[in-house]
Design a protein around this nucleic acid. Structure first.
Length: 183
DNA sequence: GTTCCGATGCTT
DNA sequence: AGCATCGGAACG
């Protein structure tokens, strides 16, 4: 699989579920650390009761309402940094959460190193200082894949408070991949 | 194998 | 008060 093609603003400026599905198998690159994306979740606009966009554009979430292809990194449970990519048309408030990566280079060879959204950022050295970055330039970016993986689709994790929106099938993963989260 | 719980700090 | 989590302890 060639992984040299950096994904562009236009690539990310499509509906979150489409981008999410196509991100599986792509490479997430931060400097000399690279992981293959094997699990993601799509978060829609303010109408999505599981999304951080549900309160509209706040100081934390305003980046979600900006142009696609920017990072949205926030602190979860006081401990874990979460890495998202803004998608869709400007103003929509969409993003895709990267939930798991498999080591490709610079991460060692334990498939559990990037299994879980908090572990993705720890493995790749991403924190809130990487919030609002333009992934179309700089050392943090995503590179395309050539071969689509076997795709799993199901409900998002950890959003039970969102009622019916928790049951929407907006989580995508590489089926049977050892770096995908268990539950 | 399962369930429970504390850590830890930012957000509304 | 609640949270887009994790790792360890306790239990069976």
């Amino acid at each position: 699989m060639a992984r040299t093609e950096r994904l562009t603003h236009a690539w990310f400026a499509r509906p979150a579920p489409i981008v999410a599905r196509e991100l599986i198998g792509c490479a997430l690159v931060h400097g000399d650390r690279t992981g293959m994306i094997v699990e993601v979740e799509a978060y829609l606009g303010p109408h999505d009761k599981a999304s951080h966009a549900r309160f509209g554009a706040t100081p934390r979430t305003s980046v979600m309402f900006g142009p696609a292809g920017r990072s949205y990194v926030y602190l979860c449970y006081g401990i874990h940094e979460m890495f998202n990519i803004v998608t869709g048309d400007e103003g929509h408030g969409e993003a895709v959460l990267i939930r798991a990566v498999a080591p490709l280079s610079g991460l060692g060879d334990d498939p559990r190193i990037g299994r879980g959204p908090g572990k993705v950022t720890r493995a790749l050295g991403i924190d809130r200082s990487h919030d609002r970055r333009d992934l179309a330039r700089g050392e943090l970016y995503v590179a395309a894949h050539e071969v689509p993986p076997k795709l799993g689709i199901g409900p998002r994790i950890g959003v039970d408070y969102a009622g019916a929106w928790a049951r929407r099938r907006l989580r995508f993963w590489w089926r049977d991949h050892p770096a995908v989260t268990k539950p």
